[in-house]
Amino acid sequence: MPFDSLRPKVTTILANTAETAEQRLTEVCELLQTAVGYYDWVGFYFANEAERTLHLKAFAGEPTDHTVIPFGKGICGQVAESNANFVVADVTAQTNYIACSLYVKAEIVIPLFKNGKNIGQIDIDSHSANPFSSEDERFLEWVNEQVAEIL
């Protein structure tokens, strides 16, 4: 796992105050998508509480039509309501799944908390079956903690 080597790179990207928060988030997405072989799409969605929707703010990978997701819909929408990590080993086994690509086999979504409130999430799609482990969860939780500090 390259996670230990990625931590200082994530920290450096997020510390670059010459860039906007959105630019830094895009760079984090690009880093993770290129550095972790089974991270085929990486994105950050942020909640609009009034509309009960998630909005894509930064990503790396193939463009997606799913730039706005209602709370409760798909894996991301479920995490917006549950406030809990959601690891999907096989997306075809999920009845409430939004297909972003025919190639996606697995997904992991980790909520992003700021001051104890779920304000968004990091979403990762993989073209590999069942690639995510507890190490991915812990690393992505750490990424979200770092991201929360710049928001």
Rank of each mutant, 00 (worst) to 15 (best):
residue 130 N to E: 15
residue 71 F to Q: 06
residue 96 N to L: 04
residue 3 F to W: 09
residue 5 S to Q: 15
residue 26 T to N: 03
residue 143 V to T: 09
residue 19 E to A: 06
residue 70 P to V: 02
residue 35 A to D: 12
residue 103 Y to I: 06
residue 105 K to P: 07
residue 35 A to T: 09
residue 85 N to E: 14
residue 57 K to E: 13
residue 64 T to C: 05
residue 146 Q to R: 12
residue 131 P to S: 04
residue 144 N to R: 12
residue 35 A to V: 00
residue 123 D to R: 10
residue 43 G to D: 11
residue 84 A to D: 08
residue 62 E to M: 08
residue 78 Q to T: 14
residue 97 Y to W: 04
residue 79 V to D: 14
residue 6 L to H: 11
residue 101 S to V: 00
residue 108 I to A: 07
residue 133 S to I: 03
residue 134 S to A: 13
residue 3 F to Y: 15
residue 140 L to D: 02
residue 134 S to K: 15
residue 139 F to T: 08
residue 6 L to W: 10
residue 91 V to R: 10
residue 32 L to C: 07
residue 72 G to L: 09
residue 24 R to V: 00
residue 117 K to A: 09
residue 28 V to R: 10
residue 75 I to Y: 01
residue 72 G to M: 10
residue 48 N to F: 03
residue 71 F to R: 09
residue 112 L to M: 13
residue 77 G to R: 09
residue 129 A to Y: 13
residue 49 E to W: 13
residue 126 S to M: 07
residue 67 T to N: 11
residue 69 I to P: 00
residue 44 F to S: 05
residue 122 I to F: 05
residue 82 S to K: 12
residue 76 C to N: 06
residue 139 F to W: 11
residue 70 P to A: 11
residue 122 I to M: 13
residue 129 A to V: 02
residue 78 Q to R: 14
residue 131 P to I: 00
residue 100 C to S: 12
residue 45 Y to T: 01
residue 57 K to Q: 13
residue 45 Y to S: 04
residue 117 K to D: 09
residue 120 G to T: 08
residue 15 A to G: 10
residue 102 L to F: 07
residue 55 H to T: 01
residue 2 P to D: 12
residue 93 A to R: 15
